[in-house]
Design a protein around this nucleic acid. Structure first.
Lengths: 252, 252
DNA sequence: TGCCTGAAAACTGTTGACAGTTTTTGTGCC
DNA sequence: GGCACAAAAACTGTCAACAGTTTTCAGGCA
């Protein structure tokens, strides 16, 4: 439970230049998003408004506004009079998200198969090849993998699908940094990537949809297996938002 | 901290009660949401912070925070230095949303078919019957219809699916109040409702999924037909957010 | 030691004010 | 009347201060 506290100089002063098109709130929001997704802020951490304000060189207003936005996109949870906390998602939450992502990814596949261009096929093909080459290097493989999935969804041509999918994917980042891609799975995963590509190339919508749905579900199963094998270790401690009040019992 | 019993009026007490669990921001947010979904605030309208603050009896802070939340849930759009506007969604946006909803609703059907209880079946059945009885009364039919869809998704037992679906459904409210349910469609619609119910009753996941997907797509088609027949009328004016600046061309 | 108690510290919720930008209004000129 | 232009009004962005709540902590007591 580390609290962000301010001991670095205001970094956001330089951003004053850009302030014509971006408001402080949106800049703060992006910065907080980055900190959360990168793991700099861990699940359960509290976002101390004053400390953040000082650290980023702004007042508490923009910080609070940014937090409200983050709350809506489910990256943080706000508790009245106690503050905003980086959201801690349970295994069940993560599994639920996988199911929803699976449905969306499948729908993207079906739509994409009927409209994919040869240029898009080439782009996707290049990514699959690059992943094959990076087969042993997780740090090289991972961003390519993310890119491949993002492109598949973008190319489907449905703007709302993209934002919905992206928001869910981002939320999954809250569930244990890394661990999602284990070494052995990369080869399996890329075999699936290639199969998807082939289905798209022949415009087989049903097959592309099925493959893409199952590709996400495979990720879900991997996560499940991973956590099961971790069962020996410490159980994941859920953040206790409803903290008991020690005194003041007379009320109720 | 003890109970202040002295001379407080009852309404004061309830107000303070609420303040314990709800912040002004969340109350304002709900009120704005209501105003938007009910059509009291129309698409394209600007939310004047000072006016709203005075009307709701709060300062601008909570209003601004609420707007940031609304922005994230895509009910409003914020333009720097110009204000926040009730979002105007295009026909294309609405169609996109229908497709995403269709995928989610279908996924809900597949999941639900494997786990539905007899109590849930009874609840759904009662709703279908009630809709059949309300066949000629849109005002009675509509809320039942909304309820039926909501239950189908809730009963699927996936919390994220519920919130995602609900958010998309709410966003659709931005697209022309009413008009979604035309008289003739009610009978057709309820025939589909009954077919879905039957597939669920026999635990046919594939069939339930397909029927539910198609049920939403039927709504999409109805919307399309409706707007086509409206083509003779005025074209939908898209809100011009990127308003041209008449002067001030030097500054870049 | 353990644990209650109550005051101090820390922090969030809310407000009102000020600064900078956009929009409106008013005026002179053709 | 129509148009350019500048002053004023209106509004958003940001901040600093105050109020109320939660958390911490030192001291007393069994």
């Amino acid at each position: 439970m580390n609290e962000v506290d301010g001991n670095s100089a205001p970094e956001m002063v330089t951003a004053l230049r850009i302030r014509r098109t971006e408001t402080l709130t949106s800049l703060v929001r992006k910065e907080l998003e980055r900190m959360i997704v990168s793991g700099e802020l861990k699940a359960g951490d509290r976002l101390n408004e004053s400390a953040l304000a000082e650290r980023l060189g702004v007042s508490r207003g923009p910080i609070r506004e940014a937090c409200r936005g983050l709350e809506q996109s489910r990256l943080v949870e706000v508790v009245v009079n106690r503050g905003t906390f980086v959201r801690q998602i349970s295994l069940q939450d993560a599994l639920d998200i996988y199911d929803v992502r699976s449905a969306l990814f499948g729908a993207a596949g079906e739509a994409l198969a009927t409209r994919i261009t040869s240029a898009q096929l080439a782009t996707l093909s290049a990514l699959v090849e690059a992943m094959a080459r990076a087969a042993d290097d997780i740090d090289a493989y991972y961003p390519l993998n993310v890119d491949y999935h993002a492109r598949l969804v973008e190319f489907a041509g449905n703007a709302r699908l993209v934002t919905t999918y992206r928001s869910l994917a981002q939320e999954l980042h809250l569930f244990r940094r890394r661990g999602l891609v284990s070494e052995g799975s990369m080869a399996v995963s890329n075999r699936e990537h290639r199969a998807i590509l082939e289905a798209l190339a022949v415009r087989d919508a049903a097959r592309a949809g099925t493959l893409m749905r199952e590709h996400i579900l495979a990720g879900k199963k991997r996560l499940l297996k991973l956590t099961e094998s971790e069962q020996a270790g410490a159980a994941a401690p859920a953040l206790d938002f409803q903290r008991r009040r020690r005194r003041l019992a007379a009320g109720t």
